[in-house]
Design a protein around this nucleic acid. Structure first.
Lengths: 266, 266
DNA sequence: CCGGGGCCTTGATGCAAATCAACGCGGCCT
DNA sequence: AGGCCGCGTTGATTTGCATCAAGGCCCCGG
Protein backbone atom coordinates (compact mmCIF):
# COMPACT_ATOMS: atom_id res chain seq x y z
CA UNK A 1 0.00 0.00 0.00
CA UNK A 2 2.86 2.30 -0.63
CA UNK A 3 2.13 4.17 -3.82
CA UNK A 4 -1.43 3.32 -4.87
CA UNK A 5 -2.35 4.41 -8.37
CA UNK A 6 1.20 5.42 -8.92
CA UNK A 7 2.38 1.83 -8.87
CA UNK A 8 0.59 0.77 -11.96
CA UNK A 9 2.26 3.39 -14.06
CA UNK A 10 5.54 3.99 -12.33
CA UNK A 11 6.43 0.45 -11.43
CA UNK A 12 7.32 -0.32 -15.02
CA UNK A 13 10.16 1.62 -16.48
CA UNK A 14 8.79 4.77 -18.00
CA UNK A 15 10.33 5.67 -21.31
CA UNK A 16 7.08 5.78 -23.24
CA UNK A 17 5.94 9.05 -24.67
CA UNK A 18 3.76 11.42 -22.73
CA UNK A 19 0.04 10.93 -23.22
CA UNK A 20 -0.61 14.58 -23.91
CA UNK A 21 2.26 16.96 -24.67
CA UNK A 22 3.94 16.05 -27.91
CA UNK A 23 6.87 18.40 -27.69
CA UNK A 24 8.94 16.64 -25.06
CA UNK A 25 10.91 13.92 -26.71
CA UNK A 26 12.84 11.77 -24.34
CA UNK A 27 14.52 9.66 -26.96
CA UNK A 28 17.36 11.26 -28.77
CA UNK A 29 20.87 11.92 -29.77
CA UNK A 30 22.93 13.06 -26.85
CA UNK A 31 20.49 11.86 -24.23
CA UNK A 32 16.95 12.57 -23.11
CA UNK A 33 17.96 15.52 -20.97
CA UNK A 34 19.62 17.27 -23.86
CA UNK A 35 16.39 17.77 -25.76
CA UNK A 36 14.11 18.21 -22.76
CA UNK A 37 11.54 20.93 -23.31
CA UNK A 38 11.77 21.90 -19.65
CA UNK A 39 15.54 22.11 -19.56
CA UNK A 40 15.81 25.87 -19.72
CA UNK A 41 13.08 26.19 -17.11
CA UNK A 42 14.91 24.05 -14.63
CA UNK A 43 18.28 23.95 -12.96
CA UNK A 44 19.53 21.57 -15.62
CA UNK A 45 19.97 24.69 -17.72
CA UNK A 46 23.21 25.51 -15.94
CA UNK A 47 24.83 22.23 -16.86
CA UNK A 48 27.19 21.64 -19.75
CA UNK A 49 27.18 18.59 -21.98
CA UNK A 50 29.23 16.57 -19.54
CA UNK A 51 26.98 17.44 -16.63
CA UNK A 52 23.89 16.62 -18.64
CA UNK A 53 25.32 13.25 -19.56
CA UNK A 54 25.92 12.42 -15.92
CA UNK A 55 22.43 13.61 -15.06
CA UNK A 56 21.01 11.38 -17.77
CA UNK A 57 22.60 8.37 -16.19
CA UNK A 58 20.73 9.02 -12.97
CA UNK A 59 17.42 10.08 -14.44
CA UNK A 60 14.43 7.88 -15.07
CA UNK A 61 12.00 9.51 -17.42
CA UNK A 62 8.48 8.72 -16.31
CA UNK A 63 4.97 9.52 -17.38
CA UNK A 64 2.03 10.08 -15.10
CA UNK A 65 -1.73 10.48 -15.46
CA UNK A 66 -4.09 12.82 -13.70
CA UNK A 67 -4.67 11.67 -10.09
CA UNK A 68 -1.45 9.66 -9.94
CA UNK A 69 0.23 10.15 -6.59
CA UNK A 70 3.88 11.04 -6.88
CA UNK A 71 4.78 11.26 -3.21
CA UNK A 72 2.85 10.63 -0.04
CA UNK A 73 3.31 12.64 3.15
CA UNK A 74 5.27 10.71 5.74
CA UNK A 75 6.79 8.23 3.31
CA UNK A 76 10.58 7.88 3.23
CA UNK A 77 11.92 10.51 0.84
CA UNK A 78 13.80 8.32 -1.60
CA UNK A 79 13.00 10.08 -4.85
CA UNK A 80 13.31 13.50 -6.27
CA UNK A 81 11.31 14.64 -9.29
CA UNK A 82 11.79 17.26 -11.89
CA UNK A 83 8.46 17.92 -13.60
CA UNK A 84 8.90 18.17 -17.37
CA UNK A 85 5.27 18.31 -18.51
CA UNK A 86 1.86 18.56 -16.89
CA UNK A 87 0.84 19.96 -13.53
CA UNK A 88 1.08 18.65 -9.98
CA UNK A 89 -0.40 19.81 -6.72
CA UNK A 90 1.57 19.60 -3.48
CA UNK A 91 -0.54 19.50 -0.35
CA UNK A 92 -0.77 18.77 3.34
CA UNK A 93 -3.67 17.15 5.11
CA UNK A 94 -4.93 17.48 8.66
CA UNK A 95 -6.37 14.46 10.41
CA UNK A 96 -9.93 15.75 10.08
CA UNK A 97 -9.60 16.16 6.33
CA UNK A 98 -8.81 19.84 6.03
CA UNK A 99 -6.46 20.25 3.14
CA UNK A 100 -3.96 22.96 2.29
CA UNK A 101 -2.28 23.02 -1.08
CA UNK A 102 1.16 24.51 -0.58
CA UNK A 103 1.97 24.81 -4.24
CA UNK A 104 1.35 23.85 -7.82
CA UNK A 105 4.20 22.45 -9.88
CA UNK A 106 4.68 23.09 -13.57
CA UNK A 107 7.41 22.10 -16.01
CA UNK A 108 10.84 22.90 -14.62
CA UNK A 109 9.76 22.66 -10.99
CA UNK A 110 11.32 20.33 -8.46
CA UNK A 111 9.56 18.02 -6.10
CA UNK A 112 11.12 16.47 -3.04
CA UNK A 113 14.28 18.48 -3.10
CA UNK A 114 13.82 20.37 0.11
CA UNK A 115 12.99 17.67 2.59
CA UNK A 116 14.45 15.58 5.35
CA UNK A 117 14.27 11.82 5.32
CA UNK A 118 10.49 11.81 4.98
CA UNK A 119 8.26 13.79 2.66
CA UNK A 120 6.55 16.60 4.59
CA UNK A 121 3.72 16.72 2.01
CA UNK A 122 1.92 14.70 -0.61
CA UNK A 123 1.97 15.37 -4.33
CA UNK A 124 -0.66 14.36 -6.85
CA UNK A 125 -0.86 14.94 -10.58
CA UNK A 126 -3.55 17.35 -11.73
CA UNK A 127 -3.09 16.44 -15.35
CA UNK A 128 -1.16 13.88 -17.35
CA UNK A 129 2.49 14.70 -17.76
CA UNK A 130 6.10 13.60 -17.48
CA UNK A 131 8.85 13.85 -14.90
CA UNK A 132 12.49 12.93 -14.43
CA UNK A 133 12.87 10.83 -11.34
CA UNK A 134 16.14 10.60 -9.42
CA UNK A 135 17.23 8.75 -6.38
CA UNK A 136 17.88 11.43 -3.79
CA UNK A 137 20.94 9.59 -2.61
CA UNK A 138 22.68 9.46 -5.96
CA UNK A 139 21.51 12.97 -6.76
CA UNK A 140 23.26 14.19 -3.64
CA UNK A 141 26.39 12.43 -4.71
CA UNK A 142 26.17 14.13 -8.07
CA UNK A 143 25.67 17.49 -6.37
CA UNK A 144 28.95 17.13 -4.56
CA UNK A 145 30.69 16.81 -7.90
CA UNK A 146 28.83 19.54 -9.74
CA UNK A 147 29.14 22.73 -7.70
CA UNK A 148 27.30 24.73 -10.34
CA UNK A 149 24.31 22.50 -9.88
CA UNK A 150 24.42 22.82 -6.12
CA UNK A 151 24.60 26.58 -6.31
CA UNK A 152 21.69 26.64 -8.76
CA UNK A 153 19.68 24.46 -6.41
CA UNK A 154 20.37 26.71 -3.46
CA UNK A 155 19.17 29.62 -5.52
CA UNK A 156 16.08 27.75 -6.67
CA UNK A 157 15.26 26.76 -3.11
CA UNK A 158 15.70 30.37 -2.05
CA UNK A 159 13.23 31.44 -4.70
CA UNK A 160 10.77 28.87 -3.43
CA UNK A 161 11.21 30.22 0.06
CA UNK A 162 10.51 33.74 -1.12
CA UNK A 163 7.39 32.47 -2.89
CA UNK A 164 6.32 30.72 0.31
CA UNK A 165 6.71 34.01 2.18
CA UNK A 166 4.47 35.71 -0.33
CA UNK A 167 1.91 32.98 0.16
CA UNK A 168 2.16 33.51 3.91
CA UNK A 169 1.39 37.19 3.41
CA UNK A 170 -1.52 36.24 1.18
CA UNK A 171 -3.00 33.77 3.64
CA UNK A 172 -2.36 35.88 6.69
CA UNK A 173 -3.52 39.26 5.53
CA UNK A 174 -5.26 39.34 2.17
CA UNK A 175 -8.99 39.28 1.43
CA UNK A 176 -10.63 36.75 -0.85
CA UNK A 177 -10.56 39.10 -3.83
CA UNK A 178 -6.90 39.95 -3.24
CA UNK A 179 -6.06 36.28 -2.95
CA UNK A 180 -7.63 35.30 -6.23
CA UNK A 181 -6.24 38.35 -8.01
CA UNK A 182 -2.76 37.54 -6.71
CA UNK A 183 -3.15 33.94 -7.81
CA UNK A 184 -4.17 34.90 -11.33
CA UNK A 185 -1.44 37.51 -11.62
CA UNK A 186 1.12 34.95 -10.48
CA UNK A 187 -0.09 32.39 -12.99
CA UNK A 188 0.06 35.01 -15.71
CA UNK A 189 3.62 35.91 -14.73
CA UNK A 190 4.57 32.26 -14.80
CA UNK A 191 3.01 31.86 -18.21
CA UNK A 192 5.00 34.85 -19.41
CA UNK A 193 8.20 33.29 -18.13
CA UNK A 194 7.34 30.11 -19.98
CA UNK A 195 6.92 32.06 -23.19
CA UNK A 196 3.24 33.03 -23.19
CA UNK A 197 1.81 36.52 -23.62
CA UNK A 198 0.70 36.77 -20.01
CA UNK A 199 -2.89 37.46 -20.98
CA UNK A 200 -4.29 33.99 -21.45
CA UNK A 201 -4.13 31.99 -18.24
CA UNK A 202 -4.70 28.29 -18.17
CA UNK A 203 -6.10 26.77 -14.97
CA UNK A 204 -5.50 23.05 -15.02
CA UNK A 205 -6.81 22.72 -11.47
CA UNK A 206 -10.39 22.63 -10.18
CA UNK A 207 -12.07 25.39 -8.17
CA UNK A 208 -11.72 23.22 -5.09
CA UNK A 209 -7.97 23.04 -5.63
CA UNK A 210 -7.72 26.78 -6.07
CA UNK A 211 -9.69 27.13 -2.85
CA UNK A 212 -7.38 24.78 -0.98
CA UNK A 213 -4.43 26.76 -2.24
CA UNK A 214 -5.85 30.15 -1.29
CA UNK A 215 -7.32 29.17 2.06
CA UNK A 216 -10.89 29.64 0.85
CA UNK A 217 -13.85 27.44 -0.16
CA UNK A 218 -14.99 26.53 -3.66
CA UNK A 219 -18.05 28.70 -3.23
CA UNK A 220 -15.99 31.75 -2.41
CA UNK A 221 -13.63 31.13 -5.32
CA UNK A 222 -16.61 30.87 -7.59
CA UNK A 223 -18.24 34.03 -6.28
CA UNK A 224 -15.04 36.03 -6.48
CA UNK A 225 -14.38 34.81 -10.00
CA UNK A 226 -17.82 36.01 -10.95
CA UNK A 227 -17.12 39.36 -9.37
CA UNK A 228 -13.87 39.78 -11.30
CA UNK A 229 -15.71 38.79 -14.46
CA UNK A 230 -18.50 41.29 -13.80
CA UNK A 231 -16.02 44.05 -13.14
CA UNK A 232 -14.41 43.35 -16.49
CA UNK A 233 -11.06 42.37 -15.02
CA UNK A 234 -11.10 38.91 -16.53
CA UNK A 235 -13.08 37.02 -19.13
CA UNK A 236 -13.68 33.28 -18.89
CA UNK A 237 -12.89 31.49 -22.13
CA UNK A 238 -13.66 28.05 -20.77
CA UNK A 239 -13.97 26.80 -17.23
CA UNK A 240 -10.25 26.25 -17.21
CA UNK A 241 -8.83 29.14 -19.16
CA UNK A 242 -9.40 32.83 -19.03
CA UNK A 243 -8.14 36.04 -20.45
CA UNK A 244 -6.94 38.95 -18.35
CA UNK A 245 -8.76 41.98 -19.72
CA UNK A 246 -7.40 44.54 -17.31
CA UNK A 247 -3.98 43.59 -15.96
CA UNK A 248 -3.52 46.91 -14.22
CA UNK A 249 -6.70 46.52 -12.25
CA UNK A 250 -5.83 42.91 -11.50
CA UNK A 251 -2.47 44.01 -10.10
CA UNK A 252 -4.16 46.69 -8.04
CA UNK A 253 -6.63 44.19 -6.61
CA UNK A 254 -3.78 41.83 -5.87
CA UNK A 255 -2.38 44.44 -3.51
CA UNK A 256 0.86 44.62 -5.43
CA UNK A 257 3.09 47.31 -4.06
CA UNK A 258 4.17 48.23 -7.56
CA UNK A 259 7.38 49.10 -5.78
CA UNK A 260 9.88 47.36 -7.94
CA UNK A 261 10.20 43.99 -9.61
CA UNK A 262 7.16 42.84 -11.47
CA UNK A 263 5.10 45.82 -12.41
CA UNK A 264 4.67 46.25 -16.15
CA UNK A 265 1.38 44.89 -17.30
CA UNK A 266 2.41 44.46 -20.92
CA UNK B 1 17.48 57.67 4.85
CA UNK B 2 18.80 54.23 4.22
CA UNK B 3 18.98 52.43 7.50
CA UNK B 4 17.30 54.65 10.10
CA UNK B 5 17.90 53.60 13.67
CA UNK B 6 20.27 50.99 12.50
CA UNK B 7 22.78 53.53 11.39
CA UNK B 8 23.52 54.86 14.80
CA UNK B 9 24.52 51.48 16.11
CA UNK B 10 25.71 49.60 13.09
CA UNK B 11 27.58 52.38 11.36
CA UNK B 12 30.36 52.12 13.90
CA UNK B 13 32.20 48.87 14.13
CA UNK B 14 30.42 46.64 16.57
CA UNK B 15 32.74 44.63 18.76
CA UNK B 16 31.34 45.74 22.06
CA UNK B 17 29.66 43.17 24.25
CA UNK B 18 25.95 42.49 24.06
CA UNK B 19 23.84 44.66 26.34
CA UNK B 20 21.89 41.74 27.75
CA UNK B 21 23.19 38.17 27.35
CA UNK B 22 26.44 37.70 29.16
CA UNK B 23 27.37 34.28 27.81
CA UNK B 24 28.32 35.20 24.25
CA UNK B 25 31.91 36.35 24.27
CA UNK B 26 33.16 37.60 20.98
CA UNK B 27 36.67 38.29 22.06
CA UNK B 28 38.88 35.28 22.41
CA UNK B 29 41.63 32.94 21.61
CA UNK B 30 41.14 31.31 18.24
CA UNK B 31 38.66 33.90 17.02
CA UNK B 32 35.21 35.14 17.91
CA UNK B 33 33.44 32.37 15.99
CA UNK B 34 35.25 29.67 17.89
CA UNK B 35 33.64 30.55 21.18
CA UNK B 36 30.31 31.70 19.84
CA UNK B 37 27.42 30.51 21.97
CA UNK B 38 25.29 30.08 18.87
CA UNK B 39 27.85 28.07 16.97
CA UNK B 40 26.29 24.68 17.49
CA UNK B 41 22.87 26.08 16.69
CA UNK B 42 23.98 27.38 13.33
CA UNK B 43 25.61 26.06 10.21
CA UNK B 44 28.99 27.12 11.54
CA UNK B 45 28.83 23.92 13.57
CA UNK B 46 29.86 21.89 10.54
CA UNK B 47 33.09 23.79 10.07
CA UNK B 48 36.52 22.73 11.29
CA UNK B 49 39.11 25.08 12.77
CA UNK B 50 40.34 26.13 9.37
CA UNK B 51 36.85 26.89 8.11
CA UNK B 52 36.05 28.85 11.27
CA UNK B 53 39.17 30.90 10.85
CA UNK B 54 38.18 31.83 7.31
CA UNK B 55 34.67 32.65 8.48
CA UNK B 56 36.11 34.90 11.18
CA UNK B 57 37.92 36.92 8.60
CA UNK B 58 34.65 37.72 6.86
CA UNK B 59 32.49 38.23 9.91
CA UNK B 60 31.75 41.52 11.58
CA UNK B 61 30.36 40.98 15.04
CA UNK B 62 27.68 43.52 15.72
CA UNK B 63 25.31 44.41 18.49
CA UNK B 64 21.78 45.67 18.10
CA UNK B 65 19.06 47.09 20.33
CA UNK B 66 15.36 46.47 20.33
CA UNK B 67 13.69 48.23 17.38
CA UNK B 68 16.90 48.42 15.35
CA UNK B 69 16.20 47.65 11.73
CA UNK B 70 18.54 45.06 10.29
CA UNK B 71 17.24 44.95 6.74
CA UNK B 72 14.58 46.87 4.90
CA UNK B 73 12.34 45.36 2.24
CA UNK B 74 13.40 46.43 -1.23
CA UNK B 75 16.91 47.48 -0.28
CA UNK B 76 19.84 45.90 -2.14
CA UNK B 77 20.71 42.66 -0.38
CA UNK B 78 24.34 43.28 0.45
CA UNK B 79 24.55 41.72 3.87
CA UNK B 80 23.81 38.42 5.45
CA UNK B 81 23.33 38.00 9.18
CA UNK B 82 23.69 35.15 11.54
CA UNK B 83 21.84 35.96 14.75
CA UNK B 84 23.91 35.02 17.79
CA UNK B 85 21.82 36.51 20.59
CA UNK B 86 18.44 38.18 20.96
CA UNK B 87 15.36 37.94 18.79
CA UNK B 88 14.39 39.44 15.45
CA UNK B 89 11.13 39.61 13.57
CA UNK B 90 11.03 39.27 9.78
CA UNK B 91 8.00 40.83 8.16
CA UNK B 92 6.34 42.09 5.02
CA UNK B 93 4.17 45.16 4.73
CA UNK B 94 1.32 46.00 2.38
CA UNK B 95 0.89 49.55 1.18
CA UNK B 96 -2.13 50.11 3.42
CA UNK B 97 -0.21 49.08 6.52
CA UNK B 98 -1.29 45.48 6.90
CA UNK B 99 1.65 43.56 8.24
CA UNK B 100 2.54 39.90 8.11
CA UNK B 101 5.39 38.54 10.15
CA UNK B 102 6.90 35.65 8.21
CA UNK B 103 9.16 34.48 10.98
CA UNK B 104 10.97 35.11 14.22
CA UNK B 105 14.72 34.64 14.35
CA UNK B 106 16.60 33.34 17.35
CA UNK B 107 20.26 32.54 17.95
CA UNK B 108 21.63 30.36 15.18
CA UNK B 109 19.16 31.60 12.56
CA UNK B 110 20.14 33.20 9.30
CA UNK B 111 18.82 36.38 7.82
CA UNK B 112 19.17 37.37 4.20
CA UNK B 113 20.49 34.09 2.97
CA UNK B 114 17.63 33.13 0.73
CA UNK B 115 17.12 36.21 -1.36
CA UNK B 116 17.81 37.67 -4.76
CA UNK B 117 19.52 41.01 -5.18
CA UNK B 118 16.98 42.80 -3.02
CA UNK B 119 15.58 41.87 0.36
CA UNK B 120 12.04 40.56 -0.02
CA UNK B 121 11.23 41.48 3.58
CA UNK B 122 12.22 43.73 6.44
CA UNK B 123 13.79 42.61 9.69
CA UNK B 124 13.66 44.43 13.01
CA UNK B 125 15.09 43.50 16.36
CA UNK B 126 12.56 42.56 19.04
CA UNK B 127 15.14 42.63 21.78
CA UNK B 128 18.77 43.64 22.15
CA UNK B 129 21.20 41.08 20.82
CA UNK B 130 24.17 40.31 18.63
CA UNK B 131 24.76 39.11 15.10
CA UNK B 132 27.56 38.19 12.74
CA UNK B 133 27.33 40.22 9.60
CA UNK B 134 28.81 39.09 6.31
CA UNK B 135 28.98 40.59 2.89
CA UNK B 136 26.85 38.31 0.75
CA UNK B 137 29.35 38.55 -2.05
CA UNK B 138 32.33 37.35 -0.07
CA UNK B 139 30.18 34.80 1.72
CA UNK B 140 29.28 33.31 -1.64
CA UNK B 141 32.91 33.15 -2.54
CA UNK B 142 33.61 31.33 0.69
CA UNK B 143 30.77 28.93 -0.02
CA UNK B 144 32.38 27.88 -3.27
CA UNK B 145 35.45 26.84 -1.30
CA UNK B 146 33.72 25.14 1.60
CA UNK B 147 31.37 22.54 0.14
CA UNK B 148 30.39 21.34 3.60
CA UNK B 149 29.11 24.79 4.38
CA UNK B 150 27.15 25.00 1.16
CA UNK B 151 25.54 21.62 1.76
CA UNK B 152 24.65 22.66 5.31
CA UNK B 153 23.10 25.85 4.00
CA UNK B 154 21.02 24.00 1.44
CA UNK B 155 19.77 21.78 4.22
CA UNK B 156 19.03 24.73 6.46
CA UNK B 157 17.16 26.49 3.69
CA UNK B 158 15.19 23.31 3.06
CA UNK B 159 14.20 23.22 6.70
CA UNK B 160 13.07 26.81 6.48
CA UNK B 161 10.99 25.95 3.47
CA UNK B 162 9.36 23.06 5.32
CA UNK B 163 8.62 25.43 8.21
CA UNK B 164 7.11 27.91 5.77
CA UNK B 165 4.86 25.15 4.44
CA UNK B 166 3.67 24.43 7.95
CA UNK B 167 2.93 28.10 8.42
CA UNK B 168 0.97 28.05 5.17
CA UNK B 169 -1.11 25.19 6.51
CA UNK B 170 -1.61 27.10 9.73
CA UNK B 171 -2.71 30.31 8.02
CA UNK B 172 -4.81 28.60 5.40
CA UNK B 173 -6.70 26.09 7.46
CA UNK B 174 -6.30 26.40 11.21
CA UNK B 175 -8.57 28.14 13.71
CA UNK B 176 -7.38 30.82 16.10
CA UNK B 177 -6.97 28.32 18.96
CA UNK B 178 -5.07 25.91 16.75
CA UNK B 179 -2.80 28.69 15.54
CA UNK B 180 -1.82 29.86 18.99
CA UNK B 181 -1.42 26.30 20.26
CA UNK B 182 0.81 25.49 17.30
CA UNK B 183 2.84 28.62 17.90
CA UNK B 184 3.41 27.82 21.56
CA UNK B 185 4.23 24.19 20.82
CA UNK B 186 6.74 25.29 18.19
CA UNK B 187 8.38 27.75 20.57
CA UNK B 188 8.58 25.04 23.20
CA UNK B 189 10.19 22.67 20.71
CA UNK B 190 12.69 25.34 19.77
CA UNK B 191 13.47 25.96 23.41
CA UNK B 192 14.04 22.25 23.89
CA UNK B 193 16.44 22.20 20.97
CA UNK B 194 18.31 25.11 22.51
CA UNK B 195 18.67 23.19 25.76
CA UNK B 196 15.57 24.16 27.71
CA UNK B 197 13.07 21.79 29.31
CA UNK B 198 10.35 22.63 26.81
CA UNK B 199 7.93 23.64 29.54
CA UNK B 200 8.85 27.25 30.11
CA UNK B 201 8.31 29.35 27.01
CA UNK B 202 9.68 32.84 26.69
CA UNK B 203 7.80 35.26 24.45
CA UNK B 204 10.06 38.19 23.63
CA UNK B 205 7.49 39.56 21.20
CA UNK B 206 4.33 41.59 21.88
CA UNK B 207 0.78 40.32 21.41
CA UNK B 208 0.55 42.43 18.27
CA UNK B 209 3.60 40.67 16.85
CA UNK B 210 2.17 37.27 17.65
CA UNK B 211 -1.03 38.37 15.93
CA UNK B 212 0.84 39.52 12.85
CA UNK B 213 2.62 36.20 12.76
CA UNK B 214 -0.52 34.11 13.14
CA UNK B 215 -2.77 36.13 10.85
CA UNK B 216 -4.95 37.31 13.76
CA UNK B 217 -5.53 40.50 15.76
CA UNK B 218 -4.13 41.36 19.18
CA UNK B 219 -7.62 41.04 20.66
CA UNK B 220 -7.99 37.51 19.38
CA UNK B 221 -4.55 36.52 20.59
CA UNK B 222 -5.42 37.89 24.00
CA UNK B 223 -8.78 36.12 24.15
CA UNK B 224 -7.36 32.81 23.01
CA UNK B 225 -4.51 33.07 25.51
CA UNK B 226 -7.09 33.59 28.22
CA UNK B 227 -9.03 30.58 27.03
CA UNK B 228 -5.93 28.35 27.10
CA UNK B 229 -5.17 29.66 30.56
CA UNK B 230 -8.71 28.99 31.77
CA UNK B 231 -8.62 25.47 30.38
CA UNK B 232 -5.44 24.82 32.33
CA UNK B 233 -3.31 24.23 29.25
CA UNK B 234 -0.88 27.03 30.05
CA UNK B 235 -0.09 29.28 33.00
CA UNK B 236 1.17 32.81 32.53
CA UNK B 237 4.25 33.55 34.62
CA UNK B 238 4.67 37.08 33.35
CA UNK B 239 3.28 38.79 30.26
CA UNK B 240 6.20 37.44 28.33
CA UNK B 241 6.79 34.01 29.73
CA UNK B 242 4.53 31.09 30.43
CA UNK B 243 4.57 27.52 31.51
CA UNK B 244 2.97 24.71 29.53
CA UNK B 245 0.90 22.81 32.06
CA UNK B 246 -0.58 20.27 29.70
CA UNK B 247 1.65 19.62 26.69
CA UNK B 248 -0.51 16.74 25.48
CA UNK B 249 -3.60 18.92 25.32
CA UNK B 250 -1.60 21.69 23.71
CA UNK B 251 -0.42 19.31 20.99
CA UNK B 252 -3.97 18.10 20.49
CA UNK B 253 -5.25 21.65 20.12
CA UNK B 254 -2.43 22.40 17.71
CA UNK B 255 -3.86 19.77 15.40
CA UNK B 256 -0.66 17.80 15.45
CA UNK B 257 -1.05 14.58 13.55
CA UNK B 258 1.08 12.79 16.10
CA UNK B 259 2.10 10.82 13.07
CA UNK B 260 5.81 10.78 13.57
CA UNK B 261 8.46 13.29 14.43
CA UNK B 262 7.74 15.45 17.41
CA UNK B 263 5.30 13.74 19.67
CA UNK B 264 6.71 13.14 23.15
CA UNK B 265 5.49 15.70 25.61
CA UNK B 266 8.27 15.24 28.11
C1' DC C 1 -31.54 9.79 -26.25
C1' DC C 2 -31.75 9.65 -21.54
C1' DG C 3 -29.95 9.29 -16.71
C1' DG C 4 -26.33 9.97 -13.32
C1' DG C 5 -22.51 12.13 -11.29
C1' DG C 6 -18.83 15.60 -11.21
C1' DC C 7 -18.02 20.25 -11.10
C1' DC C 8 -19.53 24.82 -10.88
C1' DT C 9 -22.56 28.58 -9.61
C1' DT C 10 -25.84 31.05 -6.88
C1' DG C 11 -28.69 32.00 -2.80
C1' DA C 12 -29.84 31.89 2.36
C1' DT C 13 -28.10 31.56 6.78
C1' DG C 14 -24.59 31.10 10.52
C1' DC C 15 -20.42 31.95 12.81
C1' DA C 16 -15.53 32.92 14.01
C1' DA C 17 -12.83 36.50 14.11
C1' DA C 18 -12.45 41.54 13.05
C1' DT C 19 -13.61 45.91 14.45
C1' DC C 20 -15.01 49.34 17.64
C1' DA C 21 -14.81 50.78 22.30
C1' DA C 22 -13.52 51.13 27.06
C1' DC C 23 -10.56 50.39 30.75
C1' DG C 24 -6.60 48.54 33.76
C1' DC C 25 -1.83 48.19 34.46
C1' DG C 26 2.98 49.38 34.62
C1' DG C 27 6.97 51.88 33.08
C1' DC C 28 8.94 56.18 32.19
C1' DC C 29 9.49 60.94 31.92
C1' DT C 30 8.80 65.28 34.07
C1' DA D 1 4.56 61.88 43.17
C1' DG D 2 1.73 62.53 39.15
C1' DG D 3 0.42 61.90 34.51
C1' DC D 4 1.16 60.06 30.05
C1' DC D 5 1.58 56.38 26.89
C1' DG D 6 2.14 51.83 25.19
C1' DC D 7 0.51 47.34 25.97
C1' DG D 8 -2.88 44.04 27.26
C1' DT D 9 -7.50 42.52 28.40
C1' DT D 10 -12.40 42.38 28.02
C1' DG D 11 -17.00 43.46 26.14
C1' DA D 12 -20.37 44.82 22.25
C1' DT D 13 -21.16 44.78 17.60
C1' DT D 14 -20.19 43.95 12.77
C1' DT D 15 -18.73 41.41 8.85
C1' DG D 16 -16.41 38.45 5.48
C1' DC D 17 -16.34 34.18 4.54
C1' DA D 18 -17.98 29.41 5.69
C1' DT D 19 -21.65 26.49 5.72
C1' DC D 20 -25.90 24.70 4.19
C1' DA D 21 -28.86 24.10 0.34
C1' DA D 22 -30.44 23.95 -4.36
C1' DG D 23 -30.06 23.94 -9.11
C1' DG D 24 -27.47 24.21 -13.80
C1' DC D 25 -24.11 22.46 -17.05
C1' DC D 26 -21.51 19.05 -19.22
C1' DC D 27 -19.58 14.78 -20.02
C1' DC D 28 -19.94 10.03 -20.28
C1' DG D 29 -21.98 5.66 -20.32
C1' DG D 30 -25.98 2.81 -21.07
Amino acid sequence: MALSRLDSRFAGNGRREAPEPADCQHEGRVGPCHDCAARQLSVCGVLGDEGLRRLDQLAEHETFSARDILVREGDPAVHLFNITAGAVRVYKLMSDGRRQIVGFLFPGDFLGLATGDRYPFSAEAISAGTACRFSRKSYRKLLAELPDLEAALLERTSDELAAAHNQILLLGRKTAVERLATFLADLAARGRRAGGDGKIVHLPMTRAEIADYLGLTTETVSRVTTRLKTRGVIRLLTLHSLRIENPRELARLAGLDMGGAEAGDG
